[in-house]
């Protein structure tokens, strides 16, 4: 049986203290490796904390061997694959919310968050540059893709990853809990679980979501990390709110079985999508605004 033992590191972070957060990453990686985890995912901005505001330029790093923080993470990635969240500063000194996939001492992929929520309680567009691409990449367990929080509140990034070959979607969040009502979970948790289950169902793939725990001032991060399988079934659900490592072994053969039954990927009319997108965005009078 082809399997992947996945770890979801639902951690608390120290706001703006990269050294302390790095220590926690290395400690979790060691613990996870000891439990047989092959790929360990951390949440959004796991090396820095989330509400950074004016701290952004002081916590930025670059995913490369000559970066002091990444040198240690890359060394660790020889034992266990890692997805880590950080602030990426490019050569022109633009700052991105980023997540890096590290494996066998190499930086395999870096994703820059393409949707920066700047409304209500969120102010990301004030402090960060917008990412400009959505790409899948190859891992030892097949093709994967990374999205960060608001990226998957929009339908297009997961769709693009699907078409680019991602059978394993790795979603990272630092999602502040909100929407207390009389149900057993916050409405923010309910929403995220709904869409993750929906993506797994309609794309017939694995969707793993790793969320933050803990607080930043009055904001709670609700944890509740999940994995849904290609049938849209829940495989694992980490506790709400509490920090901890959740380990699950995925049966990758489920991709074969589900798609034999339900060939949604085979039947996807990408040429039709392309034609219609060109019509809609291509300047016709009834078209959507360009963006």
């Amino acid at each position: 049986m082809r399997t992947l033992t996945l770890g979801l590191a639902q951690i608390k972070t120290k706001l703006g203290d990269v050294a302390a957060n790095l220590d926690k990453h290395l400690e979790y990686a060691e613990r996870a490796a000891a439990q047989g985890v092959e790929l360990l995912c951390f949440p959004e901005l796991s090396l820095t904390g989330y509400v950074l505001q004016d701290l952004v330029p002081t916590v930025a790093h670059h995913a490369a061997p000559d970066d002091s923080v990444f040198a240690q993470l890359l060394e660790t990635s020889r034992k266990i694959d890692l997805v880590v969240g950080f602030v990426d500063e490019d050569r022109r000194h633009r700052f991105f919310i980023a997540a890096a996939y590290l494996s066998q001492g190499q930086v395999v992929h870096v994703h820059h968050k393409v949707y920066l929520p700047t409304y209500g309680m969120f102010d990301e567009g004030r402090f960060f540059a917008w990412g400009d691409s959505v790409r899948a990449f190859d891992t030892r367990w097949g093709r994967a893709g990374i999205l960060i929080c608001e990226d998957f509140w929009h339908a297009s990034p997961p769709y693009l990853l699907w078409l680019d070959g991602a059978d394993l979607m790795l979603f990272c969040s630092a999602s502040p809990g909100r929407g207390l009502d009389n149900t057993d979970r916050l409405s923010s948790a309910r929403w995220v679980e709904h869409v993750n289950q929906a993506y797994a169902s309609v794309f017939t793939n694995f969707v793993a979501h790793t969320n933050r725990a803990g607080f930043e001032d009055g904001l709670n991060f609700w944890g509740g990390s999940t994995v849904f399988d290609p049938n849209g079934d829940l495989v694992v659900h980490a506790p709400y709110f509490d920090e901890g490592l959740t380990v699950v072994t995925l049966d990758l053969g489920q991709l074969h079985r589900t798609r034999a039954r339900l060939p949604l990927l085979r039947d996807e009319r990408t040429a039709l999508v392309m034609r219609e997108m060109q019509r809609i965005l291509g300047g016709g009078t009834e078209g959507e605004r360009r963006n």
């Binding site: 809990g177 207390l180 009502d181 057993d184 979970r185 916050l186 607080f215 001032d217 709670n220 709110f241």
Partner: peptide, 25 residues
């Protein structure tokens, strides 16, 4: 229409964690 009803256990969990964590910070 009961829109103000809350799940007290969810609120209790968040608020006790909030006090513990933010005081210790």
């Amino acid at each position: 229409d009961g829109k103000l009803d809350i799940n007290p256990e969810v609120a209790r969990k968040i608020l006790t964690s909030f006090l513990r964590e933010e005081i210790s910070r």
